[in-house]
Design a protein around this nucleic acid. Structure first.
Lengths: 348, 348
DNA sequence: TTGTATGCGTTATCAG
DNA sequence: CTGATAACGCATACAA
C-alpha cells in the first residue's frame, strides 16, 4: 500500500498543460458549472449554449480529468474487479465479458489479482475501496461470506461462485453439482463403470460440489463408489498428470476419467499418453470448464461448458444495475455437456 | 469516453465517512502537511511526531485517497498497460509479469484492451493519459511509430515487439527472426526437407520476421523454397486447422510443419489428427511462443520459448526506471528452442 | 436556465 | 523542522 520509492517529484509532464473545463467555459462564454452540466446531462440547458460548449470542447480537445471528477462528484465511473489469477484461461474470458459490458456504458474496469490468497484478496478490496470505485466484482472469492458482506455495506458488490444475498450484494452461481452429474452420467451411459475422478482443490466450494455430483451420478446408476478411484488434484495441469501416474502406479482398474477441470484433464491426457494409454480407445476422458483450447486437444476434450464470458457479462451488467439502484436478476445458463472425441463407448 | 447513463447521483456510500489525512493530523496533534510528509517520506521529521502519526494512522485505519493524491501531487502511482486481448494466453503471462514488478514498488497497473484495433488503441492511450497514469506500457502496439512517439512526448512509454527509440520511449524487442531460424534448423537437422510453414497474420511485424527466419534457414541449408508449402494463417487456432486442411486437400507433400505460433500449432495438430496423420510419426510439428498449455499437448509441442512473463517484468521494471529518471537497459533473453515430443527424425 | 461559491482530500510552496 | 495557505480540476448546493 505504501510507496517504497523516495524519488524526487519529477518535473511536471513535458507536454503542454492540460485543457481544463474552465478553459472550455471561457471559450464558450459560459460558466464552468454550465459546462459541467452539459457534459454530464445533469440539467436542461439552452440549445445555444449547449452548442457553443460542444464546439469549444471539440476545438480544445477537452477530456475531463477522471481524478477530479471522482474527487468532486464521489463517482469514478470505474468498477473494481478482483480476479484470482489474471493469467488463467478461465478468468481471461470472464474479464473480457466484464470489459465488454462496462465499456459501452462509460465505465472502466480496474483489475486486480488476489492469487487465491484471502489476505491478498482483502488487500485488493481495500485498495479498490480507497480508489473510490463505484462497485466491485469479485470472481470466485476466497474470503469469508462475512468479509464479503461487510464490504458490501460500503458499496455495491457482485460475487461469483457463491450463493450469497445481502443488501448491496448480488451473487452469480454456476451449478457445479449438476454439471458434474451430467459429465458422470455421460460416461455411465457409454457403459463405463470404473470411472476415476480427479478432484479439484477441495478448498474451493466448486470442487466439493463437483465431487458430490460425481458421486450422486454413480449412486443414481447403482454403481458402487470406489474411493480408490478418487485422486486428489489441485486444479492445475500437473496434478492431473500426477493423478494418472498415481492410478497407474497403484494398478487401479479404470476405463474412464472425469477430471474436475479441463486443466487437469489436459495433464491427465499427457499422463495417459506417456503410459501408452490411448484416448478414447483405452480410456475415456471428460473435463469441466470448456477452456478455449480444449476443443483443440487431440482428441478434442469432452467437457462441461462453463460460461466464463457470459459470467463476465452478467456480472458487469449486474453491478451496473445495482449502481443504478435496480435489483439485478441475472441468472447463469445451466450446465451443458459437450461431447467431443475424448469420450467413447467402453471396450470390453 | 462519455457516459451514456443519466442516473441521478446515488446517495453517498452507505458506509461511514472516510478517514481523512486531516483527522489523522488532529489525532496526532500535528498539521496535515506533517502527516503527508511522514507518509511519503518527503522530509525529515522528529521521531516523536513520526510515532504519533504512525500510531494515529493505525488506530484510525487511515488509507490515503489515490484520487486526491493524484490531483494534488501530479503523480498517481499507476501505470497504464495497453494489451491487445486480455483473454489471450500470451498476454496473461505478460500482464502477470508487469503486476509482479509494479506491486512491490507501490504502483498499480491499469489494464486496457485494444483488440488489435489501432483506433481502439489510440482511445486507450488517451483514456490512460486522462487518468493521469505516470507511465504507459504498450504490449505489441498496432499504432504507427509516429503515434507512439507522440504519446511519449507527454509521458514515459515502454513498447514491446518493436524497435523504437526516443526521448521518453523505451522498446523491448524479441528476436523473432532467430527464433524462427532455430525452429526451422531443428526440423532440418532431423532430416526434414519438405517443411510446411503456417504464417502469422502478416500485418504483425512479428509474423513477417518469423517468415523470414523460416526462409533464411532453408536457404542456409540449401533447401529450395517451395511457395506451395507456405500457408497463410491468422495466429489463431482455426487458421492452423484450416491450413492443414488446405495442405491435405491440395495434396502437398510435407513431413513437417512449422507454425508461426503455438495456437496455430494446436489447430494444426487437430487437423492432422482428423486426417489420420500421427505426430510425430507421420508429421513433425513445431510451434512458437511456448504457451503454458503447449507442454500438455499430446504429444507435448516442440516450440520456441517466448519469455512472456519475463517480458512483462522487464517492461514493468523499465517503465519504473524511466519514471525515476533512469535510462532502462533491459534486454530480452535470446530465443530458446524447446525440443519436446512433437518433432522427430523424418521417416522415409 | 445560469452563474457563484464552496468543498472533495492531498501535496507543494512558502514562511517561520 | 513545522505549520499555514494555495492550488489540483471538477461537481454541486445555493442564489439569482
Amino acid at each position: 500500500m505504501e510507496n517504497k520509492n523516495n524519488d524526487p517529484a519529477p518535473p511536471r509532464a513535458a507536454g503542454k498543460p492540460p485543457v481544463t473545463l474552465e478553459m472550455v467555459a471561457k471559450l464558450a462564454g459560459v460558466s464552468p458549472s454550465t459546462v459541467s452540466r452539459i457534459l454530464n446531462g445533469t440539467a436542461v440547458v439552452s440549445d445555444a449554449k449547449r452548442e457553443a460548449v460542444v464546439e469549444a470542447t471539440k476545438t480544445l480537445g477537452f477530456v475531463p480529468n477522471p481524478l477530479a471528477r471522482g474527487l468532486a462528484g464521489g463517482r469514478t465511473f470505474s468498477i473494481g474487479v478482483v480476479t484470482q489469477a489474471i493469467d488463467s484461461p478461465f478468468y481471461g474470458a470472464a474479464l473480457r465479458g466484464i470489459e465488454d459490458e462496462l465499456d459501452p456504458m462509460g465505465y472502466s474496469p480496474l483489475f486486480m489479482s488476489a492469487h487465491w490468497d484471502p489476505v491478498a484478496e482483502a488487500r485488493c478490496l481495500e485498495a479498490l475501496h480507497a480508489r473510490r470505485v463505484d462497485g466491485i466484482v469479485v470472481l470466485m472469492p476466497r474470503l469469508s461470506d462475512a468479509a464479503l458482506q461487510a464490504c458490501a455495506q460500503a458499496l455495491p458488490v457482485v460475487v461469483t461462485g457463491r450463493e450469497l444475498r445481502a443488501a448491496q450484494l448480488f451473487s452469480l452461481k454456476f451449478d457445479n453439482f449438476t454439471g458434474a452429474l451430467r459429465a458422470t452420467e455421460h460416461l455411465l451411459s457409454l457403459g463405463h463403470r470404473q470411472i476415476a475422478f480427479i478432484t479439484g482443490d477441495e478448498e474451493h466450494p466448486d470442487a466439493a460440489e463437483r465431487h458430490r455430483g460425481y458421486r450422486a451420478a454413480l449412486q443414481a446408476a447403482g454403481v458402487a463408489f470406489d474411493p480408490q478411484l478418487v485422486v486428489p488434484g489441485k486444479y492445475h495441469e500437473v496434478s492431473g498428470l500426477e493423478a494418472v501416474n498415481h492410478l497407474v502406479a497403484k494398478k487401479r482398474k479404470f476405463t474412464a476419467i472425469f477430471a474436475a477441470n479441463d486443466q487437469m484433464a489436459a495433464g491427465a491426457a499427457l499422463g495417459l499418453f506417456q503410459h501408452g494409454l490411448r484416448v478414447p480407445e483405452d480410456v475415456s476422458l471428460v473435463g469441466f470448464d470448456n477452456l478455449p483450447n480444449s476443443v483443440y486437444a487431440t482428441p478434442p476434450l469432452s467437457t462441461i461448458h462453463q460460461p466464463a464470458y457470459e459470467l463476465g457479462r452478467l456480472a458487469g451488467a449486474s453491478i451496473l444495475q445495482m449502481i443504478a439502484g435496480t435489483q439485478p436478476t441475472a441468472v447463469l445458463p445451466l450446465p451443458e455437456l459437450l461431447v467431443r472425441g475424448s469420450s467413447a463407448r467402453v471396450r470390453l
